[in-house]
């Protein structure tokens, strides 16, 4: 099924293929026994592989081409999705999608960066790298949610804000800064979920919220391991070391007090089972929404600002 196979996935997928082939002869009792034996081995292998992933391997998981993206989650978790377009100033950025949707029986404003699946859709989505108008569209939708008292859910998945000439001309930095400022004081609940790649300011531009959740195999940091390697090691070759040094996985960020909870993925990662992943995330979001609904807007904003104010480690 998978179009893209990571090195450490290979032995597992080979065994699974073998099981599938043997199933054709499953009426033979000897073979049925053999199938059970191999299936057990597959599970053991999966457990040992996925519990021992290095940070760089988790980065690869986060970038897996079959991983569910923002629109997949919206489709699988919500009903009555109405996509809203444009920043009302310049254009509609295809790298950020968003709109009204119903999760459980709650209307929410849901949005996130959107990657493409193949070359054509990646060009259309600019590889999930937003321009300033994307962040401004997101802010417009958040203001709309605030006006009508609807919670906001943002899904983060981007290799970074687009570093282009026009992006600079139109104020990429200002657009992100404005979002940080306005999201900090938005008077409705905001839940942030890092679903794939959380690369620096381009991710953070949708990343201020009351609850910050992160999928088990997502990454989130100030810079990608490759760029970090190229700057600090002056070579692209040290991405594994850079990933280790940056401590960018979900357990790392939990320890650093940046995220509130880790959302577990199906065995083998979100790309192995979109339905199950979406079901797990939906259940988590419903619980979080229920808890946040109890808070008054003033309290919500105060707690949100205090939450981010506590982040950092200084001496003296």
């Amino acid at each position: 099924m998978a179009k893209m196979i990571l090195d450490f996935e290979k032995p597992i997928l080979e065994l699974e293929k073998k099981v599938e082939e043997m199933r054709r002869y499953a009426d033979n009792p000897d073979i049925a026994q053999e199938i059970a034996r191999i299936e057990k081995r597959v599970r053991q292998l999966q457990q040992s592989v996925y519990s021992g992933l290095t940070r760089w391997q988790k980065v690869q998981m986060a970038r897996h081409a079959d991983r569910p993206y923002t629109l997949d989650y919206i489709q699988l978790m919500t009903t009555d999705f109405v996509e809203l377009h444009g920043d009302r100033a310049f254009k509609d950025d295809k790298a950020i999608v968003g709109g009204l949707a119903r999760i459980g029986d709650t209307s929410v404003m849901i949005m996130g960066q959107q990657k493409g699946r193949d070359t054509k859709s990646n060009v259309y989505r600019n590889f999930g790298m937003p321009n300033p108008e994307g962040y401004r569209k997101a802010m417009r939708l958040m203001k709309l949610a605030e006006k009508f008292g609807r919670p906001v859910i943002t899904l983060l998945d981007t290799p970074g804000a687009f570093p282009g000439l026009e992006a600079e001309e139109r104020g990429q930095a200002e657009a992100i800064a404005r979002n940080l400022f306005e999201m900090a004081r938005l008077r409705v609940p905001i839940i942030v979920v890092i679903i794939g790649e959380g690369a620096s300011g381009g991710a953070l531009g949708l990343g201020i919220g009351d609850r910050i959740l992160m999928l088990e195999y997502a990454w989130y940091s100030v810079i990608s391991p490759e760029s970090c390697s190229s700057i600090l090691w002056r070579s692209w070759e040290y991405k594994e070391q850079a990933a280790e040094a940056l401590q960018l996985t979900a357990p790392d960020l939990k320890k650093q007090g940046i995220i509130d909870a880790i959302v577990p993925e199906p065995l083998g990662g979100a790309h192995r089972d979109h339905q199950q992943m979406a079901a797990i995330l939906k259940e988590t979001l419903l619980q979080e929404l229920k808890a946040l609904k109890k808070l008054k807007p003033e309290k919500l904003v105060e707690r949100r600002i205090d939450k981010f104010s506590r982040m950092g480690v200084t001496v003296g």
Binding site: F181, A184, R185, G201, V222, D252, I305, S309
Partner: peptide, 23 residues
């Protein structure tokens, strides 16, 4: 820009400073 050697905590200083400014 942000200091790489403090990882995501450096990134969060963007959030922290911006959030404070709302007050």
């Amino acid at each position: 820009g942000a200091r790489m050697m403090e990882g995501a905590l450096s990134l969060m200083q963007m959030a922290k400073t911006s959030a404070k400014l709302t007050r």
